[in-house]
Nucleic acid binder design. Structure first.
Lengths: 144, 144
DNA sequence: GTTGTCGCAACTGTAGTTGTTACGACAGGC
DNA sequence: GCCTGTCGTAACAACTACAGTTGCGACAAC
């Protein structure tokens, strides 16, 4: 289906900034992060812009500018990141409204919406269980 | 994100066939189902073709042909339908492989894959809880 | 004023989904 | 044998989403 990697790249950028700051640096630039994720600096800036609007990171402009975490990695869950970078619902209802004169067409949308609400809730619970600190520790524990 | 309605339309078609058969008809045609879902018969045939490959419906050709359920609505869960019509994973990893020389780039993919496996498992559990009989009953209970 | 970086708009390329047309394959009725 | 209705499937266009790229203005430190 979607094959959308926004959440992956956003988590990558946050873990990178967190690790970089622990090594004593103040800020990280999109030009530093981009090669690690093998993408373009503008892609990083777009995603970090979403995260800034959600209050997860801060940016400074001018010479010596860059990005820094607004909250600890322990306090940021993947659900926070997901909500910041993924706008729409997981599953869509009918693109064009079904026939309201048909019994099925009339009742199917609320029925499916209830199911989809439950599915999204389960997905959110699962994402909320993992913090970015967990992700970073898992990354650092990877075999060389 | 994806805004993909394949699961919705597939469930709609199955509920429609199930209800139609309970009204005493042998088979339903894609031309009958399509107007109820407000889409094209070929879209219905494509989705029902996926469901036939998964063993959920059967099709007959020739005059008087059409589609019929291969299993009871009670025994078909939305997970069965999801697996039949949705090919790929929910979240993708990096489109281009991250820098293996960077600590984060090296360890991020297995770390995120573990998270995504858990999320998909939660989604599957949730979809498996709902049968198409549940959906049809919910549809029939909708206010007029 | 020079420099380095973000902020953002514009455009392209690629892929997935949907909608549509067309036509062959098949099976039943005449 | 021919006609008819339906599936099966290919081909194509339209639309959307995301990724990638370029360009340039805004801003702040020096």
């Amino acid at each position: 289906m979607s094959a959308n990697s926004r959440l992956t790249i956003a988590a990558h950028a946050l873990a990178w900034i967190g690790l970089y700051q622990r090594q004593g640096h103040e800020v990280a630039t999109s030009e530093q992060i981009a090669p690690s994720a093998n993408t373009n600096p503008v892609v990083i800036r777009r995603l970090l812009g979403d995260l800034r609007r959600a209050g997860l990171v801060e940016s400074r402009r001018g010479v010596g500018a860059g990005w820094s975490l607004a909250r600890d990695l322990e306090s940021i869950t993947l659900l926070d990141v997901y909500e910041a970078v993924e706008p729409g619902p997981l599953f869509a209802l009918h693109r064009a409204a079904p026939d309201p004169g048909c019994v099925v067409g009339h009742g199917i949308q609320p029925a499916m919406q209830r199911v989809y609400d439950g599915v999204e809730e389960a997905l959110r619970r699962e994402l909320a269980r993992v913090t970015l600190e967990d992700v970073l520790q898992d990354v650092l524990a990877a075999p060389r």
